[in-house]
Protein backbone atom coordinates (compact mmCIF):
# COMPACT_ATOMS: atom_id res chain seq x y z
CA UNK A 1 0.00 0.00 0.00
CA UNK A 2 1.03 3.59 -0.46
CA UNK A 3 1.26 4.49 3.18
CA UNK A 4 4.46 6.32 2.37
CA UNK A 5 2.62 9.02 0.46
CA UNK A 6 3.57 12.29 2.05
CA UNK A 7 0.89 14.59 3.30
CA UNK A 8 -0.36 17.28 0.98
CA UNK A 9 -1.07 20.87 1.94
CA UNK A 10 -4.57 21.20 3.32
CA UNK A 11 -5.08 17.53 4.06
CA UNK A 12 -5.80 18.14 7.75
CA UNK A 13 -8.39 20.75 6.91
CA UNK A 14 -10.00 18.45 4.34
CA UNK A 15 -10.22 15.68 6.93
CA UNK A 16 -11.84 17.99 9.47
CA UNK A 17 -14.19 19.40 6.84
CA UNK A 18 -15.28 15.85 5.94
CA UNK A 19 -15.99 15.17 9.59
CA UNK A 20 -18.01 18.38 9.89
CA UNK A 21 -20.00 17.63 6.74
CA UNK A 22 -20.74 14.10 7.87
CA UNK A 23 -22.03 15.33 11.22
CA UNK A 24 -24.30 17.82 9.47
CA UNK A 25 -25.54 15.03 7.20
CA UNK A 26 -26.23 12.79 10.21
CA UNK A 27 -28.29 15.55 11.76
CA UNK A 28 -30.10 16.16 8.46
CA UNK A 29 -30.89 12.43 8.11
CA UNK A 30 -32.31 12.41 11.61
CA UNK A 31 -34.52 15.34 10.61
CA UNK A 32 -36.10 13.30 7.77
CA UNK A 33 -38.14 11.02 9.95
CA UNK A 34 -36.38 10.56 13.30
CA UNK A 35 -36.46 7.06 14.77
CA UNK A 36 -40.08 6.45 13.75
CA UNK A 37 -39.75 3.04 12.08
CA UNK A 38 -37.17 0.64 10.66
CA UNK A 39 -38.66 1.24 7.23
CA UNK A 40 -38.82 5.02 7.49
CA UNK A 41 -37.31 7.11 4.69
CA UNK A 42 -34.63 8.37 7.08
CA UNK A 43 -33.35 5.03 8.36
CA UNK A 44 -30.90 4.26 5.55
CA UNK A 45 -29.51 7.84 5.31
CA UNK A 46 -28.99 7.79 9.06
CA UNK A 47 -27.07 4.53 8.88
CA UNK A 48 -24.89 5.83 6.02
CA UNK A 49 -24.11 9.13 7.66
CA UNK A 50 -23.29 7.41 10.93
CA UNK A 51 -20.80 5.22 9.06
CA UNK A 52 -19.41 8.31 7.40
CA UNK A 53 -18.92 10.03 10.75
CA UNK A 54 -17.05 7.00 12.07
CA UNK A 55 -14.87 6.80 8.97
CA UNK A 56 -14.08 10.51 9.12
CA UNK A 57 -13.10 10.19 12.77
CA UNK A 58 -10.65 7.43 11.87
CA UNK A 59 -9.20 9.56 9.07
CA UNK A 60 -8.74 12.52 11.41
CA UNK A 61 -7.09 10.25 13.95
CA UNK A 62 -4.70 8.94 11.30
CA UNK A 63 -3.87 12.50 10.26
CA UNK A 64 -3.10 13.52 13.81
CA UNK A 65 -0.90 10.46 14.27
CA UNK A 66 0.96 11.20 11.09
CA UNK A 67 1.48 14.80 12.12
CA UNK A 68 3.21 13.62 15.27
CA UNK A 69 5.68 11.36 13.51
CA UNK A 70 6.02 13.45 10.35
CA UNK A 71 9.62 14.20 9.53
CA UNK A 72 9.64 14.25 5.76
CA UNK A 73 8.81 17.49 4.05
CA UNK A 74 7.74 15.51 0.98
CA UNK A 75 5.83 16.92 -1.92
CA UNK A 76 5.08 20.49 -0.98
CA UNK A 77 4.13 21.38 -4.52
CA UNK A 78 0.97 23.45 -4.25
CA UNK A 79 -2.15 21.60 -5.25
CA UNK A 80 -3.35 24.28 -7.58
CA UNK A 81 -1.07 26.14 -9.95
CA UNK A 82 -1.79 29.54 -11.42
CA UNK A 83 -2.80 27.90 -14.71
CA UNK A 84 -5.12 25.69 -12.75
CA UNK A 85 -6.80 28.64 -11.09
CA UNK A 86 -7.25 30.45 -14.40
CA UNK A 87 -8.62 27.31 -16.03
CA UNK A 88 -11.07 26.75 -13.18
CA UNK A 89 -12.20 30.34 -13.51
CA UNK A 90 -12.75 29.74 -17.22
CA UNK A 91 -14.83 26.65 -16.46
CA UNK A 92 -16.92 28.62 -14.00
CA UNK A 93 -17.47 31.42 -16.49
CA UNK A 94 -18.41 28.86 -19.13
CA UNK A 95 -20.95 27.20 -16.87
CA UNK A 96 -22.52 30.54 -16.00
CA UNK A 97 -22.64 31.76 -19.59
CA UNK A 98 -23.92 28.51 -21.07
CA UNK A 99 -27.61 29.41 -20.84
CA UNK A 100 -27.58 33.18 -21.44
CA UNK A 101 -25.17 33.05 -24.40
CA UNK A 102 -26.19 29.69 -25.73
CA UNK A 103 -24.14 26.57 -26.34
CA UNK A 104 -22.39 27.55 -29.56
CA UNK A 105 -21.14 30.97 -28.51
CA UNK A 106 -20.15 30.11 -24.95
CA UNK A 107 -18.41 26.89 -26.01
CA UNK A 108 -16.54 28.74 -28.73
CA UNK A 109 -15.30 31.32 -26.24
CA UNK A 110 -14.37 28.66 -23.70
CA UNK A 111 -12.48 26.49 -26.15
CA UNK A 112 -10.60 29.46 -27.60
CA UNK A 113 -9.63 30.78 -24.18
CA UNK A 114 -8.79 27.33 -22.83
CA UNK A 115 -6.65 26.31 -25.75
CA UNK A 116 -4.89 29.67 -25.94
CA UNK A 117 -4.06 29.28 -22.26
CA UNK A 118 -2.87 25.68 -22.38
CA UNK A 119 -1.80 25.00 -25.93
CA UNK A 120 -0.18 28.28 -26.96
CA UNK A 121 -0.34 27.50 -30.66
CA UNK A 122 -1.07 30.17 -33.25
CA UNK A 123 -4.44 31.92 -33.18
CA UNK A 124 -5.37 30.72 -36.65
CA UNK A 125 -4.50 27.11 -35.89
CA UNK A 126 -6.41 27.21 -32.61
CA UNK A 127 -9.39 28.79 -34.34
CA UNK A 128 -9.39 26.03 -36.93
CA UNK A 129 -9.27 23.27 -34.30
CA UNK A 130 -12.01 24.92 -32.25
CA UNK A 131 -14.37 25.39 -35.19
CA UNK A 132 -13.85 21.82 -36.39
CA UNK A 133 -14.45 20.39 -32.91
CA UNK A 134 -17.56 22.49 -32.38
CA UNK A 135 -18.98 21.52 -35.74
CA UNK A 136 -18.52 17.81 -35.01
CA UNK A 137 -20.01 18.09 -31.53
CA UNK A 138 -22.95 20.11 -32.79
CA UNK A 139 -23.75 17.63 -35.54
CA UNK A 140 -23.45 14.61 -33.24
CA UNK A 141 -25.38 15.96 -30.28
CA UNK A 142 -27.85 18.41 -31.75
CA UNK A 143 -28.62 16.84 -35.11
CA UNK A 144 -28.18 13.12 -34.58
CA UNK A 145 -28.99 12.79 -30.90
CA UNK A 146 -31.46 15.64 -30.88
CA UNK A 147 -30.20 17.06 -27.62
CA UNK A 148 -31.60 20.55 -27.47
CA UNK A 149 -28.54 22.47 -26.34
CA UNK A 150 -29.13 25.95 -24.89
CA UNK A 151 -29.83 28.30 -27.78
CA UNK A 152 -29.07 31.65 -26.18
CA UNK A 153 -28.50 34.50 -28.59
CA UNK A 154 -28.18 32.48 -31.79
CA UNK A 155 -31.66 31.54 -33.13
CA UNK A 156 -30.61 28.05 -34.23
CA UNK A 157 -34.03 26.55 -34.78
CA UNK A 158 -35.04 29.44 -37.07
CA UNK A 159 -31.79 29.10 -39.00
CA UNK A 160 -32.30 25.36 -39.33
CA UNK A 161 -35.87 25.88 -40.47
CA UNK A 162 -34.77 28.50 -43.01
CA UNK A 163 -32.09 26.14 -44.30
CA UNK A 164 -34.69 23.43 -44.50
CA UNK A 165 -37.01 25.64 -46.52
CA UNK A 166 -34.15 26.51 -48.81
CA UNK A 167 -33.18 22.92 -49.57
CA UNK A 168 -36.34 20.99 -48.90
CA UNK A 169 -38.80 23.40 -50.46
CA UNK A 170 -42.23 23.90 -48.99
CA UNK A 171 -44.02 20.66 -48.37
Amino acid sequence: MHTTRSKRPGEDIFGLATLAVSIVLLWQSYEISGFSALSSPGSFPMACSAVMVLGSLLVVRDNVRRNRQATTTGDRMPIITLTGVIFMALILAYALLLEPLGFLLSSFLFLMAGMMLLYRGGVVKTLGIVLLALAIIYVVFRLIFQVILPEGVIPERQIMAALGNLFGGAR
Binding site: L111, L118, A133, F141, V147
Partner: peptide, 21 residues
Protein backbone atom coordinates in the same frame (compact mmCIF):
# COMPACT_ATOMS: atom_id res chain seq x y z
CA UNK B 1 -2.89 18.18 -23.69
CA UNK B 2 -3.54 21.85 -24.36
CA UNK B 3 -6.05 20.80 -26.98
CA UNK B 4 -7.28 17.59 -25.39
CA UNK B 5 -8.13 18.91 -21.92
CA UNK B 6 -10.48 21.74 -22.99
CA UNK B 7 -12.17 19.32 -25.38
CA UNK B 8 -12.70 16.69 -22.67
CA UNK B 9 -14.18 19.37 -20.48
CA UNK B 10 -16.50 20.53 -23.23
CA UNK B 11 -17.67 16.96 -23.88
CA UNK B 12 -18.27 16.47 -20.17
CA UNK B 13 -20.42 19.59 -20.09
CA UNK B 14 -22.45 18.58 -23.14
CA UNK B 15 -22.80 15.04 -21.80
CA UNK B 16 -24.05 16.23 -18.42
CA UNK B 17 -26.42 18.66 -20.07
CA UNK B 18 -27.79 15.95 -22.35
CA UNK B 19 -28.86 13.80 -19.38
CA UNK B 20 -31.94 15.86 -18.64
CA UNK B 21 -31.48 18.88 -20.82
Amino acid sequence: KGILLPLILLLSVVGAYALNN
